[in-house]
């Protein structure tokens, strides 16, 4: 506790770095997963290869992905972009399935009603399917957000500053305080992101608030 109070600034700035490294892949990953998930849902034959293929990416250990990124991207060894791209890979791996499931959860009658109202396919996707899939997508996004926060910390083994730096620093000096503070800060950050996603998901689905009490 005393250590924490003495290092507020440091912990704060590491936390900001951590948040950026965890959130950027989330946003990019979502943007990539929506079209991929749509493809998987729209064309049945694409579903298995897309979902199994992206799911496979999940089994690559993060440390390896971080370190091999420079070879693939031609970036520098210490470039945080490596971390962002690696986490984007994981985020996509997780979200493609969720987006497909989310789109599949939209009742067929609703889609037919929309078509009957003369809404074109493109507009129907943006104004009917995607909004109705938000709750399911948000659930997947929450999982991705929370796991991203945990994975970012591994990048400390490569010297990219974020909350994981507290782990390596503490460990090198056999000093528990920074490690514990880092763990708690990670949990807090994950919680904040989780709440933010819930809030955003509620905000963009106003009809659910009146429909579903609780």
């Amino acid at each position: 506790m005393k250590w924490f109070l003495g290092h507020l600034g440091q912990v704060g700035s590491l936390m900001v770095n951590h948040a950026v490294l965890a959130v950027a892949p989330l946003v990019i990953g979502l943007l990539l997963a929506v079209p991929l998930g749509w493809l998987a849902q729209r064309y049945r034959w694409l579903r298995t290869p897309l979902i199994a293929g992206t799911g496979l990416l999940y089994t690559i250990p993060s440390l390896a992905l971080f370190i091999l990124m420079p070879l693939v991207l031609g970036t520098g060894i210490l470039d945080p972009v490596n971390v962002v791209v690696a986490l984007t890979v994981y985020t996509v791996a997780l979200l493609v399935r969720t987006v497909a499931d989310g789109l599949a959860s939209v009742p067929q009658e609703v889609l037919q009603a929309a078509t009957a109202m003369g809404i074109g396919n493109v507009r129907r996707f943006w104004s009917v399917e995607l909004p109705l899939a938000v709750p399911v997508i948000a659930a997947g996004l929450r999982v991705a957000a929370v796991s991203n926060v945990s994975i970012v910390s591994v990048a400390a083994l490569l010297g990219i500053p974020q909350l994981g730096s507290l782990f390596t620093d503490g460990f090198a000096r056999a000093f528990l305080d920074p490690i514990v503070v880092g763990i708690i800060a990670c949990i807090v950050l994950a919680l904040v992101l989780d709440l933010a996603i819930i809030a955003i998901s509620r905000a963009v689905t106003p009809w659910r608030r009146t429909q579903v009490p609780a």
Binding site: L78, D79, V84
Partner: peptide
């Protein structure tokens, strides 16, 4: 604000490190 400033001072993690 000061937190944000320190954060900037320590380098934007997304800024190019070239």
């Amino acid at each position: 604000a000061s937190l944000a400033l320190t954060a900037c001072g320590s380098g934007d993690p997304l800024a190019s490190s070239a």
